[in-house]
Computed example of a mutant assay.
Amino acid sequence: MGRKIGLSDLGSVRPIFGMGDERDNPLLEPAPVEPTREQVILRRRLTLAAAAVMILVTGLVVTYATVGFAGDLVGDALYAVLIFLIVSFIFVRMNSWRVAVIAILICTGIELFQLTGLPVEIAAVFPPARFVLGTAFDPVDLVAYIIGVLVAAGVTTWRRLD
């Protein structure tokens, strides 16, 4: 398709409007398309799932590669971040600080459940359960959970500007 060339008012040669050089017309620029609510939720859930997988892998590496107090503290904080991400995935539109409260309550409940001795019995029957339920109560774990969840909530609030 050829272009028609015309003489402008100023005497310069340029294409006549509508004949192939529409980029000069701001009315013909495509309007930005806003994603739908479902697309935003799907994108957020995919991001949360990817982050959860990375935290899970990192937590397993920390658990098996480190020993001592620092390793336990970091591992417990990562466990709490994973719980935070799972709750965020389920309640995708909930405010990050509300998710943080729920995650801290879940982590605290699991830690207090260890006082009953049932997690040890469950882990004896199904060993992977010890990663979810733990085996021994330690009040320092509660501090690590709070730190992990607060850091996760702070990062998600900063990134999403809740």
Rank of each mutant, 00 (worst) to 15 (best):
M1I: 07
R3E: 12
I5T: 10
D9W: 10
P15H: 04
P15V: 11
D24A: 06
N25W: 09
L27V: 06
L28G: 00
P32M: 06
P35M: 08
V40W: 06
L42R: 14
R43I: 02
T47K: 11
T47L: 14
M54P: 00
L56V: 09
T58A: 15
G59Q: 10
V62W: 01
V62E: 04
A65D: 04
A65L: 10
T66N: 09
T66I: 03
V67K: 12
G68P: 04
L78S: 02
Y79N: 08
A80T: 08
I83N: 00
I83Q: 01
F84P: 02
F84S: 03
S88T: 01
F89L: 12
F91W: 12
V92A: 11
V92I: 09
V92Y: 09
N95W: 05
W97N: 04
V99K: 07
I102C: 03
I106E: 04
I106D: 01
G109V: 00
G109D: 02
E111Y: 01
E111N: 01
T116D: 01
G117W: 03
V120H: 01
E121Q: 13
A124F: 07
F126L: 14
P127D: 08
A129R: 06
R130V: 15
V132A: 15
P139Y: 13
V140E: 05
L142T: 05
V143C: 06
A144S: 14
I146Q: 06
I146Y: 05
V149W: 06
A152R: 10
T157L: 08
R160Q: 13
R160M: 09
L161R: 15
